[in-house]
Nucleic acid binder design. Structure first.
Lengths: 223, 223
DNA sequence: GTCTATACAGGGATAGAC
DNA sequence: GTCTATCCCTGTATAGAC
């Protein structure tokens, strides 16, 4: 015990030696990042805690130290990807756009976000296969309401008032439809490619799909 | 080798003793059924061969006897659910329906099939998370083209000729969109319910969704 | 064709030193 | 806060009898 003193003194006198890799926040963050990767690649059951620790460059024991269990880490990983999309949604500025232009932005955003975030899709798919048990258990996640739905609602109202959109549209169902036409293309890209015998993963297919999605959804909204 | 003769003779003289529970085909079928259940509930990695054998009411060793490995069984399970939907699709008779009515049938069918077959959705999701590795490895699966897409194409053409549908529609993209607005609702029902704070799994929500889906897709198709 | 028993590896989780 | 070592269960797969 007496041997601790020198160490303590050193720590006290030079508390933030920048070399320190004993950085709790950074370690946590590295683990969450690695977890998102591994869980999205392999699902909850297929994911390996060993692998997550290895990729994060830390000892496996720290997973249990910080997150209690594999499940605990999974929940934080899920919260993390939701937090990220919410942040991007907040940043959407539709400004003074005309309803049709605003709607085009909204549809394009939901397409682009999914295109750029396959890990989000993979985690959602896994969470749903598990009956949404984590999202239901997390008050924090349930409180993370999407600003997207309100933007959609407002745009819809403005457009209806101007006579450019139909009146009888439920915003939640519209949201699900807009998200769905993009989501299904990405989430099932492999099986769709195999069944149709052509690669839907190419850049060309992506561009073509984006155009179709926007046109399809806008058409559906016409009065 | 000589001892085979009596058995052969017996088989020839009484080939179909109905009492037999040593029925290879039935055993196989029970295993595939149980596999579809277990794999859809838990994914490939989470599924337990023990559990599949238990539910099928047979010994675990038979899984390896008939299917070589867990993967082999998974592939057959996947082929099985695809075969089922293809069969139902074949049975769709659009007869002499007007294009709009025929399209309504097609959209309704894709909605209803997904509503009634959550195991199909779950297996597809898992297969896609695994990069479609099984479907790519199976010539049989890749050859299982959907008749749905051709029905869609023909209906689209007829409608365009009559001026009730747009002309510039790609059948594959349209298929993905029609399937997507239904699929996403079911595949992500749990997370959507949690985020919107209302149960989308209820019978009422289902009926409402079905109406929306048909209306949304038909609107999108108007010229 | 079906069963029992078991080999063998892998992985979640914990103990305890530093 | 981080590391090494290890426990112990579970799950795939196989051997071999009947």
């Amino acid at each position: 015990m007496a041997t601790l003193t020198p160490t303590r003194a050193a720590a006290a006198s030079a508390p933030k030696k920048a070399t320190a890799r004993r950085d709790a926040a950074a370690t946590r963050e590295a683990l969450v990042q690695a977890a998102v990767d591994e869980f999205s690649r392999s699902g909850f059951a297929g994911a390996r805690v060993d692998e997550i620790a290895r990729v994060a460059g830390v000892n496996k024991q720290l997973v249990y130290h910080y997150f209690e269990s594999k499940q605990g880490l999974y929940l934080v990983a899920l919260e993390s990807v939701y937090a990220q999309i919410r942040e991007k949604e907040q940043a959407l500025s539709l400004g003074a756009l005309e309803p049709v232009d605003a709607m085009t932005q909204l549809i394009g955003f939901s397409f682009d976000y999914l295109a750029e975030h396959p890990e989000f899709i993979a985690l959602l798919a896994d969470e749903n296969r598990n009956q949404g048990q984590h999202i239901l258990a997390s008050e924090r996640l349930k409180r993370m309401h999407s600003p997207f739905i309100e933007m959609l609602e407002r745009t819809l109202e403005r457009g209806a008032a101007q006579g450019v959109f139909r009146r009888d549209m439920d915003a939640v169902h519209l949201y699900i439809s807009i998200a769905g036409i993009s989501y299904f293309f990405f989430s099932n890209n492999h099986t769709l490619s195999a069944i149709f015998g052509k690669s839907l993963g190419s850049k060309g297919a992506l561009v073509q799909r984006r155009r179709h999605v926007i046109e399809f959804a806008l058409n559906a909204l016409r009065p």
